[in-house]
Design a protein around this nucleic acid. Structure first.
Lengths: 213, 213
DNA sequence: GACAATAGTCGACACAGTGTCAATTATGTT
DNA sequence: AACATAATTGACACTGTGTCGACTATTGTC
């Protein structure tokens, strides 16, 4: 549990062929077991078996169990990143906020298991922590722009756009995570989050969902 | 890793004497190691050694490593609970909000290590999860009252006091946790949180800290 | 002050999971 | 065919958890 990366270069080559299928098979097996049985029940042995190889062979592809996890998170995070850009263009700030929340909700729906694992494993797996934090930060950066367009000051200080948006983004992460864990309703959560976001940024709250309060 | 409680009753008695000192010594040792070396480095062997006994003896007091952790979290959570009540009386909602945040900040300062451990271990240790969640919920319940006094509707729905306050409380937990992990400034965090809370609940933001914006 | 009864302690054991490695077998390549 | 290298295996070493029977205080009781 010390070298998470060094073992890699020592083995695999570039220009892959069949091994890449195995690598994907390993990640797929890991993702499936993560969803079905959770992290603890998912051992190197069970992953290897589900991927059709033995434990020893798995260590040819990944240097450790955590490296498998990190690769899995990376795969998912890459997919998230691919979508995060095509979101806000020139829309009004309040719509950009709603879109951002809707997007996040969709990501949690589609990639919930891995995202949940990323949250839970961040404290103990540095590579995962880095991946996840950088993703959250990237989203926060986008939203900071929106907040500043909405008139939130951008100077340094506890009330500036960066600080406020950071708090809101972590709130969003936590709220959807809670929904994923407790089986809460994602739509209700999204509505509540939109309310908090808009109120905090000083934007009109009324519009959006067609339900009067 | 299946029975977290059954082993207990099978051993310890009521009316304690010397064993209770050992029990406390174990928890103290665990807390110290948690702060110094982190969860992974803290094994049953090291705890026992620091408490002046062998592994075998430790299992006389606690049924498992997780039970030690749970007891430690419980001890801390009990201390938190003891203080959570004497907070708001008839003060104005905005002051109640500021007090709540200030109180939380102080708790993180004083009991940061165990609280951090509670957050990180919740996903994998059901007993800790329950302890921590119920504490958060208790705080949320108090703040829900404040929110309703401030005029936030209390009917069921995504915009009611309960839902909004839940989101805000989890935001607060996450923000202070992040500060604890990254070594961020607790005061700045508290100021940002106060801003979000007050904006969301429709309360005056200006007063409180003596620093103009 | 013998003598139970019970609290407390120890060390050896069994077990599960991770990671390592030399040896072996597939899979191209020229 | 032979050669390199990709891929795989099974056995091994190690660490950590939890169990258990035997052994040692400690304390009350007659």
């Amino acid at each position: 549990m010390d070298d998470e990366e060094g073992a890699r270069g020592r083995r695999r080559r570039a220009t892959p062929t069949k091994g890449d299928l195995r690598e994907r098979a390993i990640l797929d097996a890991a993702e499936r077991q993560l969803a079905a049985d959770g992290y603890d029940a998912m051992t190197v042995a069970t992953i290897a078996q589900a991927a059709g190889i033995t434990r020893g062979a798995l260590y040819f592809y990944f240097g450790s169990k955590n490296e498998v996890l990190a690769a899995l998170v990376e795969r998912t995070v890459t997919r998230l990143r691919a979508e995060i850009d095509g979101t806000d263009d020139g829309v009004a700030p309040e719509d950009a906020v709603r879109q951002g929340i809707a997007w996040t909700a969709r990501m949690w729906r589609e990639h919930g298991t891995v995202m949940r694992a990323a949250v839970e494993l961040s404290p103990s797996v540095p590579a995962v922590e880095q991946l996840w934090r950088s993703t959250v930060v990237a989203l926060a950066d986008t939203m900071r722009g929106v907040a500043e367009r909405a008139g939130v000051p951008h100077g340094p200080g506890p009330h500036d756009a960066a600080a406020v948006v950071a708090a809101l983004v972590w709130m969003t992460e936590r709220a959807f995570y809670q929904a994923a864990v407790t089986g809460g309703l994602v739509d209700e959560t999204a509505a509540t989050l939109a309310h908090v976001w808009l109120s905090t940024l000083g934007l009109p709250v009324g519009t959006g969902s067609r339900q009067g309060t």
